[in-house]
Amino acid sequence: MNIYQEELLDRYWHPKNRGSVDNASFSATEHNPLCGDTLTITARIEHAILADVKFNGNGCAISQAAADLLTESLTGKTIQNARAFSPDAMRMLLTVPISSAREKCALLALTAFQKGLTSSYAHN
């Protein structure tokens, strides 16, 4: 099956959440060692809720669309719910089947986000 469905390509071309948030509570960067792509997630937390989440960076259609879907889905979630957001949830969000060779791309944003969330909570 062609993973490059209209919705995914549309996300890739016209992301809603590209950029960085103001007064970010944390910023986390993750590299994809397979291709050298870099993705940065910034988020602002207000009253234990993710008030705003955005991504920056360049990469393949899968990693970029995944980042856009993820940041949209996380916005408004409680920290607790966000922390429970799993790789499986990410795969569901993408809807297209992801081969194991593309897992890293699909999960890059989530990995960055979870890393940022963990480190920001380790600090306070």
Binding site: I3, Y4, L34, C35, G59, C60, A61, I62, S99, A101, R102, C105
Partner: peptide, 9 residues
């Protein structure tokens, strides 16, 4: 077209 997307196609 990102190289990874090209390789997938």
């Amino acid at each position: 077209v990102h190289p990874h997307d090209l390789a997938s196609i």
